[in-house]
């Protein structure tokens, strides 16, 4: 009898029930699946960008001569995004988005440190690192607001709207608003979630609960927001 039981249990896989095949909590698993679906949404936007961009004429110096903003070819991003706050009139291509990228990466790092502190039940450290993460998110949003304002107001050629822009074909500005706007909305909701987690850490909710798993779950979301920006930075600004 006992040998039969051993035989059966040795043939069962992790999928036979009685244990979690993913070896992860329900909440974290669902966060992963949500992030996968969200990744599909962002991918759709970036694939759309690729398709629309390459169905427009590319700028070619031998055909078009010196680069100017024109409706007849797709603009070079580094010629459009070259302004930095407080340095009016100075051409610093991609410097500001570079700074924004560093800010978001840094806030991702402070988030990992908050999660690490949560594992150790170190309430003070969780508070400290969550606060830094929130500050990083807010600074990024501020930069985004400045970037949008500069883009919309323009450099004397009429600026940009969803249907028209001074930099190139109408789709260029429309895609800029959709992609960076959708990402910015994610950053905004991330900051709100981070604040909620910070608040509940301060009030001692997680300490009473005995674990800081909520920090991990929101942390996953926050890293995802950083991850998306890595792709936006490459596909929208660099290429």
């Amino acid at each position: 009898m006992s040998t039969a039981t051993t035989e059966i249990s040795s043939k069962t896989s992790i999928w036979s029930g009685g244990q979690s095949p993913f070896n992860i909590s329900y909440g974290k698993l669902m966060m992963w699946f949500f992030l996968l679906s969200d990744a599909f949404t962002f991918s759709a936007l970036l694939v759309t960008y690729g398709m629309v961009r390459y169905s427009h004429t590319a700028y070619d110096p031998s055909v078009h001569g010196e680069f100017v903003f024109s409706q007849s070819y797709w603009p070079i991003p580094e010629k459009v995004f070259e302004a930095v706050p407080f340095l009016h009139g100075v051409s610093l291509p991609l410097v500001f988005v570079g700074i924004m990228t560093f800010i978001l990466i840094m806030s991702s790092v402070t988030m990992v440190l908050a999660v690490e502190a949560g594992h150790r039940m170190d309430k003070k450290a969780v508070q400290k690192w969550m606060l830094w993460t929130i500050i990083g998110g807010l600074v990024f949003l501020g930069c985004q607001a400045w970037e949008w304002t500069h883009f919309i107001v323009g450099t004397g050629g009429g600026g940009a709207s969803l249907s028209w822009n001074e930099y190139g074909p109408p789709d260029f500005a429309a895609l800029f608003f959709f992609i960076t706007g959708f990402h910015g909305t994610h950053v905004l909701s991330g900051v709100l979630l981070n604040f909620l987690i910070y608040y509940r850490t301060v009030t001692g909710m997680y300490e009473r609960r005995g674990h800081y798993e909520m920090v991990e779950k929101v942390g996953l979301y926050w890293h995802f927001v950083d991850l998306v920006w890595v792709f936006v930075f490459t596909f929208f600004y660099l290429i």
Binding site: S43, A44, L46, V47, T48, G50, M51, V52, R53, Y54, S55
Partner: peptide, 10 residues
């Protein structure tokens, strides 16, 4: 999807 749509764009 990325490859398919890039091809389509051409």
């Amino acid at each position: 999807m990325l490859i398919a749509f890039r091809y389509e764009a051409g």
